[in-house]
């Protein structure tokens, strides 16, 4: 996501911002509203005591993010977001939840003892991200009338021309995770047998 944002930033940097901070155009209002809804859904995700509801609220939050990408004209990123996160990650999450003994109603032990630590990490991460993004973009504005700057073509060329090294590094990281998962599952199989 950060990568995409940076790519988008590079695309936007060419266009100096003509408008002021939060000029109330329709798109911006929509952006803000969707953002608030996404934030709300995310909060419910971590506070609800019904595990499957949490997963479904996560769908709403991730879908909200996809809409935000759409509003930023990053169409490709938006659909990949839906495809990967809603279509696969949440399905995997639900699959895992169904394998547990999670009840239909509230889970009595849904609250972790580490929640304050988790809250601290979350606030710190959010603060860092917000700071980085604000610092990077400031008041950059997307020219909605021109050609879409987040189109598949633009994203692709940025990803594979300017940012190909991080991209490959990321894929190596994922490969490492994959190999790690295989190793873990194999080891356990031997101990059981």
């Amino acid at each position: 996501m950060t990568l995409a944002a940076t790519a988008a930033h590079a695309a936007l940097a060419a266009h100096p911002a003509p408008s002021g901070f939060l000029s109330p155009t329709g798109v911006e209002i929509a952006f803000l509203l969707v953002g608030i809804a996404t934030l709300g859904a995310a909060l419910v995700t971590v506070t609800t005591k019904q595990l499957v509801h949490a997963a479904l609220w996560l769908v709403v939050a991730l879908g909200g993010l996809a809409v935000e990408y759409l509003l930023l004209t990053a169409e490709f990123i938006a659909w990949v977001q839906v495809l990967i996160y809603v279509g696969s990650v949440v399905v995997l999450l639900l699959f895992g939840l169904m394998l547990t003994r999670a009840p239909i109603g509230r889970s009595p032990d849904a609250d972790s003892g580490n929640r304050w630590a988790a809250l601290g990490v979350a606030v710190a991460a959010a603060g860092a991200l917000v700071w980085v993004v604000v610092d990077a973009f400031r008041t950059t504005w997307i020219d909605l009338d021109g050609p879409a700057q987040g189109s598949t073509e633009a994203t692709g060329s940025f990803l594979f021309r300017h940012w190909v090294l991080p991209f490959e590094a990321l894929s190596v990281l994922l490969l490492a995770a994959l190999v790690g998962a295989i190793v873990l599952s194999r080891k356990r199989g031997k101990e059981q047998s």
């Binding site: 499957v52 169409e75 839906v82 809603v86 696969s88 949440v90 639900l94 169904m98 239909i104």
Partner: peptide, 28 residues
Amino acid sequence: VVDAGIFFVLAVMGVGVLGSLMAGWASA
């Protein structure tokens, strides 16, 4: 016309399966 058409259709079709998962879990 959707610019990232393939991704759009595959992504949205994947969402449809969530309905089955919700039904499967919520039916008790």
